[in-house]
Amino acid sequence: MLELRLLQGSLLKKVLESIKDLVTEANFDCSATGFSLQAMDSSHVALVALLLRSEGFEHFRCDRNISMGMKLVNMAMMLKCAGNDDIITIKADDGGDTVTFMFESPNQDKIADFEMKLMNIDSEHLGIPEAEYQAIVRMPSSEFARICKDLSTIGDTVIISVTKEGVKFSTKGDIGTANIVCRQNATVDKPEDAIIIEMKEPVSLTFALRYMNSFTKATPLANIVTISLSSELPVVVEYKIAEMGYIRFYLAPKIEE
């Protein structure tokens, strides 16, 4: 038996909105640790890892580890039927072939049950080793989203370069080139407006903007995004989910042939 009650149901709605275009179907894993997912996009270029820790749920009952295969557009469609202030409960029986999403309005005057069919998904779980990164950039998530969107009007790829001067996002396309430099500014009034760069050594890597733009769909989940860069390693674009966990996107840098 599985029963997970999430007071801030909007978090789950936002999580689905952020990954449903990247990943078609995925197994949601539930254990004492929490509710998690690891999935690749259909071309196996990007990987998403989600964790919602059990402590973040108002009620968390998971009698045995369970893996539930879901089609993400269908799950997103059902969660769209929940109000932004609704409490969402995820319920499933051991060995069952359905999952139920229950939506409760804040004053309990409306309760809805949506039952969705589960599916069997063969997915390979990848081991993601802890890594030392050459540079870690923390910046407002809205700023990063704006930069990716702006650059994708000019080119298909972004070169992210971190030096002691700051972080530079560059692209080029048929009509011209664009460079956006963000300097470290730790002394802003609000901590969420800060750009903080931890650099061990300079790094410059090229990424497909199509994927970066897809990752920025998680912007409503967090004010701050963390971008961890190392040559020879996939970039990690991380959005922390308030008090609960994270959503991390991994993308390998493009290599010159």
């Binding site: 690749m40 071309s43 196996h44 270029v45 990007a46 990987l47 390979e124 779980h125 990848l126 081991g127 993601i128 080793p129 790829t157 090229t206 497909a208 390693l233 996939p234 991994y250 993308l251 390998a252 840098p253 493009k254 290599i255 010159e256 042939e257």
Partner: peptide
């Protein structure tokens, strides 16, 4: 030109 490696090249299967 540049090549996009798959993510599976970097992380091993569990």
């Amino acid at each position: 030109g540049s090549k996009q490696p798959a993510i599976t090249k970097f992380f091993s299967k569990l």
